[in-house]
Nucleic acid binder design. Sequence first.
DNA 1: GTCTATAGAAGGATAGAC
DNA 2: GTCTATCCTTCTATAGAC
Lengths: 212, 212
Amino acid sequence: MYARMSEITTASPDTESPKRHDILCAAGDLFMRSGYGETSVDAIARAAGVSKATLYAHFPSKEALFATIIHDACRTHLAVTSVLPEGVADLRSALRGMGRDLLNFLLQDRALAIHRVVTAECQRFPELGRAFYDNGPGLFRRALAAWLERQQGAGRLRAGDMAVAADQFLGLLRSGLYLRATLGLARPAEAEIDATVQEAVDTFLRAFAPPD
Amino acid sequence: MYARMSEITTASPDTESPKRHDILCAAGDLFMRSGYGETSVDAIARAAGVSKATLYAHFPSKEALFATIIHDACRTHLAVTSVLPEGVADLRSALRGMGRDLLNFLLQDRALAIHRVVTAECQRFPELGRAFYDNGPGLFRRALAAWLERQQGAGRLRAGDMAVAADQFLGLLRSGLYLRATLGLARPAEAEIDATVQEAVDTFLRAFAPPD
DNA sequence: GTCTATAGAAGGATAGAC
DNA sequence: GTCTATCCTTCTATAGAC
């Protein structure tokens, strides 16, 4: 079921010292959990098992450390190619598989935390919203639009702007469930996720299937 | 165009002293702009033109002040009855008017700020997400579902669960534009908003119009 | 209720030894 | 690079005068 969920790419240089790695891990956890303002450098150093001086030897400031964390996190995303298959026999089941993979990915603790932190701090760090969007939702949206255009070319979808259709399919997927998850309300059960995906696909295909 | 946007209800007791009012206004602005952790009580007192001691005479703690601000803000919402008209001649134009009013409301600075702050702090203050959802998205969703059921009863919509349809219509409205707005990316232009609403209504009606 | 003044803790950042 | 110890600022919250 979650087989493809393991296919997550994270672009990390990994030419880093062990201590630097510990600092990044600890800072990532704390920033994701509590946001920028409520996370202290003391707490990060303590959690990483290093002194503050060591931390400041690797990062010039708390802001720089935060920016590094978030930008790295924004480059962690679904392997788009594995979720949008090339050879499609049945469009409905392809949409269902893709929708389930994507929604499960979006509802992960880590993904929700990134979205929360970026939403919270994008006023203080204006480039953050852009980095997140371009590496996450925007990237997937473009790939999905291109994929839908190929389906359209194969006669499986009616005429129309597939960029809009992509946005709308993602909107249908996120409808309700995802909003409630970002607000920290009850984590959706597996069955609820599947139902949302199925409803999204049904509605999407009723609206975008070619007229017969 | 924005005529109905003025119909916003804010439930405030208003049996408050002038200083208390000043404190609430200043704290609201600062918390909305910078979040909880980055807003200091000093800054609030300064902006309100009172001393910190006065502030603490009205509110027992920074947390209590924050909770008051946010809970008040959550009770500021669209006057649902004005956006969901009773007598509907043309469903398409009713959906368009409602969609435009709602999307314009959601894209206001104030509404975006509340959503951002609640998203950011709902882990630290778990009851916040619930209060926001129940007074905002959840409230409107229920009203919209009931409204859609009446349209369904009048034969203007096909059979199906109108709670799901309501979530999906809201998802279509928020598709793309709203996500980008919450991330602080370019504020959408009037024309872009209208286009999004129109596309949402078109897709929704293609999927939910009664089969002929 | 409102102020000034301050306590006491915690914040980010650094000096200097190793 | 890494540590301990510390600087200075800012934080939340309160005491005491009016």
